[in-house]
Structure formats: structure tokens, C-alpha cells
Amino acid sequence: MWTPVGQRVDGYWLGSLAEPGSFARELLGFSGDPVVLGALLVGVVLVAVVRGRFRDALSAAGVVVGTVVAARLLKVLLPRPEFDLVGATAHNSFPSGHVAAVAGLVVALLLVVPRGARWWCVAPGVVAVVLVAASTVLAGWHRPSDALGAVLVAGAVGRLAAGARSPL
């Protein structure tokens, strides 16, 4: 995103390939719905509460909220340089808020489930994040680097939360 070559490669995929009513657009509508995201967050928090892990419940909520807030702040704080590439847009879409929210939920879930159950949550979580990330690219909303950046933000916030709740 910071070099002409990088923007060319990244921008190659920035075109709306998803038709209205397509799976990609439907998934984005679902994954961006605040009611759905809120219900999923409540479910994650309830897992921790049922396990008697109240600090984990707070950590999980903090991961989701922190990831979404960090993604929004990064859009403002990291301007996208303009290199006057043909067909390129300087619109800063980094990182994807949809992907950040879903990735944050997956990371939060991994913080609250028992250690032995984490592998059962990783695979469907990765599938969910990949589907939402691919949908944002197919719909022309984001570049691949926007989706990857959102995943990295969720991972970083999750690591901070995990480090704050227990010693390294």
C-alpha cells in the first residue's frame, strides 16, 4: 500500500465482482449487522461467565471492542499515499471493519473457551474470517491488504488482552 507496485498488485483485486444478491453481498450484510455482532459478542461473553471466568469475559469484550476501535482509528491515522496509478483510488479502506469485527470475535472466543476446545473453534473461525475477507474483496469494498491488516489488528489486540490477563 505504500509503494506504486504494492498498490498496483493490491488494486488489481479492487473491483466489484459480486452481483447484488450474491452470497458475498449477503454475507457482508449479515456480518456487518450490529445486532448480529452484538449477539455473537454476548454469546462469547456468556461462555466465559458460565465457566466462572469473569476476567476472561471482560478480556473478550475488550478484544472485540478494541479491534473495531483500532481498525477505525487506523483508517484515520494511516493515510494512503497517492501515486497517480491508472485506475487506482487513494480511498483509504485499510483495515476492513467487517473483517476486524469477525476476526475480533474469533480471537475473543479463543480466549474464553477451554484450552482443549480451542482447536474446535479455530477451524470454523478461520473459515468465517476468510469468507468475510473474500466477500469484502469480491464486493469491491476492500483490497486484500485491508482484510489482512484487519486480521493482524485482531491478533495484536488479542495478544495484548491475553498478556494482560495472565503472565507470559
Rank of each mutant, 00 (worst) to 15 (best):
Val106Glu: 01
Val44Pro: 09
Gly52Cys: 02
Leu160Cys: 06
Gly43Lys: 11
Pro124Ser: 02
Trp141Tyr: 08
Leu73Pro: 06
Gly163Trp: 15
Val86Glu: 14
Arg118Ser: 04
Val49Glu: 06
Phe54His: 15
Thr67Gly: 02
Val63Gly: 04
Arg80Ser: 10
Arg115Gln: 09
Gly32Ser: 03
Gly38Cys: 10
Leu152Cys: 14
Val106His: 13
Arg143Gln: 09
Leu74Lys: 04
Thr89Met: 01
Arg72Tyr: 09
Ala150Gly: 11
Pro144Gly: 05
Val49Tyr: 03
Leu138Gln: 00
Trp120Thr: 00
Glu26Met: 12
Gly155Thr: 05
Val127Gly: 03
Leu28Glu: 02
Arg143Glu: 03
Gly29Ser: 00
Leu37Thr: 10
Trp141Phe: 01
Ser59Leu: 05
Gly32Cys: 07
Pro114Leu: 03
Ala161Ile: 02
Val112Trp: 07
Ala161His: 02
Ala100Trp: 08
Gly43Arg: 07
Thr67Cys: 14
Val127Glu: 02
Gly43Trp: 06
Gly104Val: 04
Val69Met: 15
Arg25Lys: 13
Leu152Asp: 02
Ala154Lys: 11
His98Tyr: 09
Phe54Met: 01
Trp141Ala: 04
Arg143Lys: 11
Arg159His: 04
Val127His: 14
Val130Leu: 11
Pro167Glu: 07
Val68His: 08
Val106Ala: 10
Gly163Pro: 10
Leu40Ile: 13
Arg165Met: 13
Val113Glu: 09
Gly66Asp: 06
Val137Ser: 00
Gly62Tyr: 11
Leu131Tyr: 08
Val132Asn: 04
Gly125Gln: 06
Val129Cys: 08
Val113Lys: 11
Leu131Ile: 01
Leu160Phe: 08
Leu109Thr: 15
Thr89Gln: 12
Ala48Asp: 05
Ala123Pro: 03
Leu77Ser: 01
Val42Pro: 01
Arg51Asn: 01
Phe30Ile: 09
Arg165Asn: 05
Val122Trp: 15
Val130Asn: 06
Val42Gly: 04
Gly116Ala: 14
Leu27Phe: 08
Leu41Thr: 12
Pro114Tyr: 12
Arg115Lys: 13
Gly125Ala: 06
Val63Arg: 13
Trp141Thr: 00
Ser166Ile: 13
Val99Pro: 07
Arg118Phe: 02
Ser59Thr: 15
Val76Ile: 05
Phe30Asp: 01
Arg51Lys: 07
Gly149Gln: 13
Ala108Val: 12
Arg53Lys: 13
Arg118Lys: 10
Gly52Ile: 01
